Computed example of a mutant assay.
Amino acid sequence: MLFIVATPIGNLQDITLRALDTLKSVDIIAAEDTRQTQKLLAHFKIKKQLVSFHKFSRENKLNQIIGLLKSGKNIALVSDAGTPGISDPGQKLVAAARDNNIKIIPIPGPSAITTILSTAGINADSFLFVGFIPKKKGRKTFLKELSKISVPVVLFESPARVLKTLKDIREHLGERDVIVGRELTKIHEEILSLPVSQMINYFVDNQPKGEFVIVIT
């Protein structure tokens, strides 16, 4: 069986009891970054065999993991943070498992998407999640298409590009209100809700650090 295990997005205490039980019981853990996952396992005193599976993994690594699953091994798939397969390369392994009739069991847990939306104070009955927007090719077209969306839009961004992205939002979507979550659930967590021009000014004066989630309302 393949277990899709959500892990904390920052605060390790956010892991679920079911996730811990699963990580303790499986034969192998397939991790996006084995070093990052080893820190999580060490914190909870879990010792397991780790194999890497990330966006640069080749077909033979995918086939190796599928072979282990078909031989009867129980494997947990984890990402660096949050839920595997959501803006994450894990979907390739899940798709291959489905193609091979391997049972897939989700172990839900922390999500940066729902975490930021829960603080937004907006109608989030419907929303659009777009992951990371294109860095260069197709970026302008992508943003123009977002301007046609009538529901809140959620996206991820890096500290190096967050200021440019906010400026591009203002240029292509107009003066919209945005909610920005930085380092969610971590010690230096910061959640701001401002018109996009004011948000730009804030990050001009305060150097962006950490991982960002943005909601365009």
Results as ranks from 00 to 15, higher is better:
residue 67 G to K: 06
residue 79 S to R: 02
residue 152 P to A: 10
residue 136 K to I: 10
residue 116 I to N: 00
residue 96 A to K: 10
residue 94 V to Y: 07
residue 213 V to P: 06
residue 22 T to H: 09
residue 207 Q to D: 11
residue 160 A to Q: 15
residue 112 A to K: 05
residue 140 K to T: 15
residue 101 N to G: 08
residue 152 P to T: 11
residue 108 P to M: 13
residue 84 P to V: 03
residue 27 D to R: 07
residue 162 V to Y: 00
residue 9 I to H: 00
residue 15 I to C: 08
residue 44 F to L: 09
residue 3 F to H: 13
residue 41 L to P: 09
residue 55 K to F: 00
residue 97 A to I: 10
residue 118 S to L: 11
residue 107 I to W: 08
residue 140 K to G: 05
residue 94 V to G: 09
residue 61 K to L: 13
residue 159 P to C: 00
residue 204 V to Y: 08
residue 122 I to Y: 10
residue 189 E to P: 02
residue 174 G to W: 06
residue 129 F to W: 10
residue 25 S to Y: 04
residue 134 P to K: 10
residue 147 S to W: 07
residue 6 A to N: 07
residue 13 Q to V: 11
residue 127 F to L: 06
residue 177 D to G: 11
residue 51 V to H: 09
residue 111 S to K: 10
residue 199 M to W: 05
residue 30 A to N: 02
residue 85 G to I: 03
residue 195 P to F: 10
residue 111 S to M: 11
residue 127 F to D: 04
residue 71 S to F: 09
residue 153 V to G: 01
residue 106 P to H: 13
residue 108 P to N: 12
residue 153 V to N: 04
residue 141 T to S: 15
residue 24 K to N: 15
residue 108 P to L: 12
residue 181 G to P: 03
residue 144 K to C: 11
residue 151 V to M: 05
residue 135 K to G: 12
residue 91 Q to L: 13
residue 70 K to F: 05
residue 115 T to D: 11
residue 126 S to M: 14
residue 186 K to Y: 08
residue 45 K to M: 15
residue 35 R to W: 07
residue 188 H to S: 01
residue 93 L to D: 05
residue 64 Q to P: 05
residue 190 E to T: 06
residue 158 S to G: 03
residue 124 A to T: 13
residue 171 E to L: 14
residue 30 A to F: 04
residue 154 V to E: 13
residue 169 I to L: 14
residue 98 R to A: 15
residue 63 N to F: 11
residue 206 N to R: 08
residue 123 N to T: 12
residue 196 V to K: 04
residue 138 G to H: 08
residue 19 A to Q: 01
residue 46 I to T: 07
residue 194 L to M: 13
residue 112 A to P: 02
residue 214 I to R: 00
residue 147 S to A: 14
residue 110 P to E: 03
